Simulated scan of single mutants.
Amino acid sequence: MTTADTGAIKVMVADDQEIARTGLRMILDAQPGIEVIAEAGDGLRAVELARRLRPDVCLFDIRMPRCDGIEATARLAGPDVADPMAVVVITTFDLDEYVYAALRAGARGFLLKDAGPDLLSQAVRAAANGDALIAPSITARLLAAFAGTGPAPPQAQPIEALTDREEQILLAVARGRTNNEIADELHISLSTVKSHVASLMTKIGVRNRVEVAMWAFETKRVAR
């Protein structure tokens, strides 16, 4: 069951700047079906509140005192977390060099600090429904810039060879296409796209679309 079936998407915002938290709250609370239920000014408080309140989506700044956004993300959504939460990271592309680490820590997506209301709400809705925002103008650009800056992936090739269709899906995800856009481009049903994406993630050993895109860049299937 998705959050769309149970009411408003509950969001927690964590940023060490009060003006930034206030701005994010105002933007999100103005969106239909989204409600900010908590704020935190540092990473440790964010982790504590998230574990207690279980919001549908955590929106984290990377640079926070006591525990930065990367560590907070790892504690809530990392590979060793039994019941990972949905985390979207907000960063400044020109200054922040920790995006790759945030994605490796389990972030389901990320935005630039100057993202507008539409993109912000899209990212929250995508994360709440088990998807990830892979915007061609933002996410693919960042993935291309940061792919390869961290340790090599533990498994460079898939467990089982990808089918031609799965290779098409892989490239589309890496380029920021949503499931609906992929369905339209490939002239297949939405359920078929979802089935291919699930199979693809199993074969390459990743958990979400952000990691699918990263894997595509790391294995040179998408040129930088």
Rank of each mutant, 00 (worst) to 15 (best):
H187L: 10
E211L: 06
D96Q: 11
P151E: 15
G109T: 02
E211I: 01
L186E: 10
L120N: 06
W215I: 00
G41P: 04
T178Q: 02
D83H: 13
L142K: 00
A140H: 00
V124G: 03
I188M: 11
L112I: 12
L142P: 00
A128I: 06
A74Y: 06
I169N: 03
L53Q: 15
A128Y: 07
V87Q: 05
A107C: 07
V11R: 04
A172P: 00
A183T: 03
R52S: 14
F93Y: 12
E48K: 13
R177C: 11
A156W: 02
G41N: 14
Q17V: 15
A102Y: 08
H196C: 07
Q168H: 08
E71T: 15
L44C: 07
F93P: 01
A172R: 05
T149H: 11
I138R: 00
E218K: 03
D118E: 15
A161Q: 11
P153Y: 09
A74Q: 09
E218D: 13
F60I: 07
L142S: 09
S189V: 01
P65I: 11
K113I: 08
G116L: 04
S137A: 14
I9A: 10
Y100H: 15
R25L: 04
D184P: 01
L112G: 10
M85F: 05
G23Y: 09
R175T: 03
P158W: 13
T3L: 13
A123M: 08
F110Q: 01
D56E: 13
H196E: 15
D131F: 05
A216T: 02
L200Y: 02
V81I: 15
R21A: 05
A174R: 02
L186P: 00
L103N: 07
I182A: 04
K203R: 14
I37Y: 12
A77F: 04
A50W: 09
C67E: 10
E167P: 00
A145P: 00
A147D: 01
L186N: 02
A86T: 12
A127I: 08
M64P: 03
R165I: 12
